[in-house]
Design a protein around this nucleic acid. Sequence first.
DNA 1: CTGTTAGCGCATTCAA
DNA 2: TTGAATGCGCTAACAG
Lengths: 341, 341
Amino acid sequence: LPVTIHEVAKRAGVGIGTVSSVLNNSRPVNETTRQKVLAAVKDLAFVPNPSARRLSLGKTHTIAVIIPYFTIASQIERLRGVMSVIAESDYDISLFAVETIPQRNKVLQTVPHRGGVDGLLIFSLNLSNEEVRRIRQANIPTVLVETVHPHLPYIFVDNIAAAQMAVSYLIDLGHQKIAYLSDHRQDLFDSGFDRSRYLGYCQALEMAGIPIRPEYYRQAGSTLEAHQRMIQELLTLPDSPTAIFAFSDEIALEVLEVARQLNLTVPGDLSVVGYDDVEVARFAQLTTVHQCLFESGLQGVEVLLDAIDNLENHQTNGSLPQLQLPTELVIRGSTGRPIQR
Amino acid sequence: LPVTIHEVAKRAGVGIGTVSSVLNNSRPVNETTRQKVLAAVKDLAFVPNPSARRLSLGKTHTIAVIIPYFTIASQIERLRGVMSVIAESDYDISLFAVETIPQRNKVLQTVPHRGGVDGLLIFSLNLSNEEVRRIRQANIPTVLVETVHPHLPYIFVDNIAAAQMAVSYLIDLGHQKIAYLSDHRQDLFDSGFDRSRYLGYCQALEMAGIPIRPEYYRQAGSTLEAHQRMIQELLTLPDSPTAIFAFSDEIALEVLEVARQLNLTVPGDLSVVGYDDVEVARFAQLTTVHQCLFESGLQGVEVLLDAIDNLENHQTNGSLPQLQLPTELVIRGSTGRPIQR
DNA sequence: CTGTTAGCGCATTCAA
DNA sequence: TTGAATGCGCTAACAG
């Protein structure tokens, strides 16, 4: 039932080569015959078969996007950045969300080798050297977003510096008792963000000569209830913190919620800093670390599409694009000077 | 550089037909030669070229998912449902997020006709009869999720009934002054949810003999600030409502926030009901309408994959699967009897 | 049981 | 400027 290039050619009274030429502007065509072809194409509502094009051209016009932590708002924002440039290109997105370790491994083993895509965009996954070796061997352009590897292009945000900036700000406000709230749920794939941010937290404390107190480092519970309980414990410690630096806005908002339940005023009794600057953060008056989420996805595809072009043109660009995106501390109402009690 | 089936055949000392047979179990193969082929495949790390398979089979093994309102948590949850079954199948997902009307129209015109996918899953978009006609003419299996059309299969939630249930619950609690908070941001594509839920709200009031007061119907602002101001206006009305039924959990949470700023107690001064039952709703103790988000996506693909199979086997299943998923009112701490002042 | 051949629909080279 | 022929890599029908 689907109409092919042959039927168009017959209808226009030309050869299939001419039809192809008209459709792709691949060679000059006499204006008269050109119009005949166009008319036939329109009459028959002809659309070239993508599978045939792909086989003939050796190009899929598709990129794979591999995303863990798919439910997290920040990931979606990155993906939106990707889609914003893809929508304007002639590429499609093939989506692979990974939610478990086995799934992660399976996707990473198969997708790069199946030849179903022209390029790979990998979000937030720490790749082993072996995995990177196999990807490079598969000779498929690949760009990392929100994760790094020395042998691959990446778009990255300096989590350590950002965390340090946030905590230093709290210290400058006069806080000495600052806790760090991690979220081990987000570290299912050992992405290392949590470690990086904790490192930045420690560095800031050290620079200020403030000792690091183990009871001020807390991992999130896996259930909402466990999580809430953990926050309560932290806030009702004998020597409870006056400020909290949270792994994410989501966690920070939970802290605000628990603080309310405990009748703690914010920022009077407790200052809270989040991370990500998702939309609700603004509404909740949450001081937070803004990172260029949309932008990171956008830049990621752009680097990837460039890499694909370069591969086609056999341009072996020597240096890998490894970009670092800036972060910014957005100061709102959830932080202030500590009140001495 | 990529290895083809011919090289495998040569290496195994057999014909390409045999290699194909082994790989696809398409016909019986002698166990000895079978092992030889498998060995060659492994040695050469052969992976069949998907483009070639697609062309030969006339099947892309890909489904398109068209999604508006991509940033909304409920959409992501539906998409997760889709991916959960796709991950276990041999299909891939091609993602089309639409954020503007022109984009919506372009995607709806091109994607069904390009032949790049075996099926279409369309979320939350009201299709015109003309658009449906063209889709059916393209003869590509299509399933609607969270929207309906008489001539297409769909997975749907009865918004009217759900809203009516929620508002009736508030009335049963003793509320008479109940407001409905819409979100016109979500209605960029005229999806009609807003209208449906307002209709259910009106029906519940009418059934209870409560007059509908226009000042109790509010549209959300486009900016967060405008939105907040609108909520404030509503809550500080001379004869302000004692209960609010919100279009979504996101809006309901904003109401809770504003109520706090106005020193209104919940549920003492104000009862709030949301819609969607997203994860944070549980944490915020929000009474809300739970709908089967994950499930709706899951069922959507299953119906779609069935439709694709039926198309291949020329089984013209007479009746269109048009399923309605149940909703449930989840009662938490944000609702209670009104306090007479 | 297995090798060979003929498409799948298109882009592109080679003649004309 | 254009038509005809070749190949992309694979599946499936055909013939042995």
